[in-house]
Amino acid sequence: MIRIATFDPYEEKQLKRLCEILYTAFAVGTEHSSNVRLPEGFAEPYEAARLLEEAPRVHAYADDKVLFLTSKKLKDRALPSGSAPTNGLSKYAGEKAIITTSVVKDLEQGMKTVARHALHQLGHTWELHHCLDPRCAMYPTWTPSFPQGEPIFCPFCRDRSDQKIRLAKS
């Protein structure tokens, strides 16, 4: 199950739409589980890795994934080879992911883009790596074409995530 936890207020109908898109992508039940409080000591742009680490616990079962949403910006990460623009983050094979909805001005119109980021980060939690196909949500998120794409996976990534999900459910 995918549990969405929000750091900021969102309209229920938007969250519902996001749940529907995620359900379609992963065939895994998705719900808005809770609003959570931002831990102490965070100022925008948030440090995504630390926020994931310190985020309040969300009631979840083994194999559930928790997707945190914030409307605030996330801070770019300094990596050994350069700086990575950061609109979301998740631990590879982990259970938590975070995305910022600040990538779109209007959530109503930009839901697909937000959902594409959600697919990407959740995809990493199901052990997907980045993909070569620009149409796929596992394409690197900082590419100019990423926001224009659909919230879908290419057949290869879809197959891989299906395998992982089936395995987790068995």
Partner: peptide
């Protein structure tokens, strides 16, 4: 990615992004 992660002591997602900011340069197709 897993070896870079171990070699540098960084999380795998950072290791992967460290490869991909090179292979998919930011702001360019």
């Amino acid at each position: 990615v897993s070896e870079i992660s171990v070699a540098l002591g960084i999380p795998e997602h950072d290791a992967e992004d460290s490869v991909d900011v090179i292979l998919f340069p930011v702001g360019r197709e």
